[in-house]
């Protein structure tokens, strides 16, 4: 049994996912781009399907679909009053339509696509290519953090102030969009498009509680993400259930645990 290595790639995949999703997620939460990221996750589906039909790389199709959906949503949101709730309505409509378009394309083109695997993850069919994609995604996230740390701080803290200082942030915004598409596509094998947001958001939110600096928040988030992913993977083997949904449920348990802890701490402070 110990000589069998079938579990190695799925384990490495899940571990890398647990590291890279919360790293990117922390930046996205701080930049208030979570809704847009959710849209991108679902818009990957029609992009991947279209790429498969044309014989293009799935990664290229996925990123194109994700960025295309964001541009479409931004165009539809133009002229709508800020804070009116209309922007959210538009984003969610494009999200739902992207999912619908993906499903329609699969049926209409009669493509041999494992829809469940794309939406909820399928570690057992993951291969070295999926692993390499995640390694590249992690490397790029770390590179952007290392080379553009101050600019990332501006984007998350004070984008209007950055504009007033004439800081060149447009390129960084585009890089973040492309990086988000890459991470989402890369995480498909482990947790799937429908569930990746849990791994992007929950460890990031938990890591931000009480964090005194961005590096501290990033370290915490990636540590929590790794722990959750490995726990989900372990439970999956023990219970013979798919890991993606288990990881998503573990993310919810993390947030509930944090909320419970905050309530207890609040009561303690009140009684003192």
């Amino acid at each position: 049994m110990l000589l069998e290595t079938w579990w190695l790639i799925p384990l490495l995949l899940v571990s890398l996912c647990g590291l890279v999703c919360p790293l990117l997620g922390t930046l996205l939460v701080l930049q208030q781009r979570v809704l847009t990221t959710n849209l991108m996750a679902y818009a990957v589906l029609p992009g991947v399907v279209f790429a498969k039909a044309l014989g293009w790389p799935a990664l290229l199709g996925g990123i194109t679909g994700a960025i295309g959906a964001v541009l479409l949503a931004e165009w539809l949101m133009q002229g709508r009053p800020a804070g009116s709730g209309q922007a959210e309505a538009v984003l969610n409509t494009v999200l739902a339509a992207s999912l619908g378009l993906g499903v329609l394309l699969i049926q209409a083109l009669e493509l041999p696509v494992n829809l469940n695997g794309l939406l909820y993850g399928d570690l057992l069919v993951a291969g070295p290519t999926d692993l390499l994609r995640l390694v590249v995604a992690l490397a790029l996230v770390l590179l952007v953090l290392g080379l553009r740390f101050q600019q990332l701080q501006w984007l998350g803290l004070d984008p209007e102030g950055a504009e007033a200082m004439e800081l060149p942030l447009r390129g960084l915004r585009l890089a973040m969009a492309a990086l988000t598409g890459l991470v989402v596509v890369s995480a498909t094998a482990a947790v799937g498009l429908a569930l990746v947001m849990a791994l992007i958001c929950a460890p990031s939110v938990a890591g931000l509680v009480g964090a005194r600096s961005l590096p501290q928040a990033l370290h915490r988030a990636s540590g929590l993400g790794l722990a959750i992913s490995l726990a989900g993977c372990g439970l999956s083997l023990g219970l013979n259930l798919p890991p993606g949904p288990l990881i998503a449920c573990a993310c919810l348990a993390l947030l509930m645990g944090r909320a419970h802890r905050n309530v207890l701490l609040g009561r303690q402070r009140g009684s003192n």
Binding site: L30, L157, D158, P159, E160, G161, S213, L214
Partner: peptide, 15 residues
């Protein structure tokens, strides 16, 4: 009314 996000994880010196 500054548009700055005061909940960002940063101290005064960092800002």
């Amino acid at each position: 009314v500054p548009s700055l996000r005061w909940h960002y994880p940063l101290d005064v010196m960092g800002l």
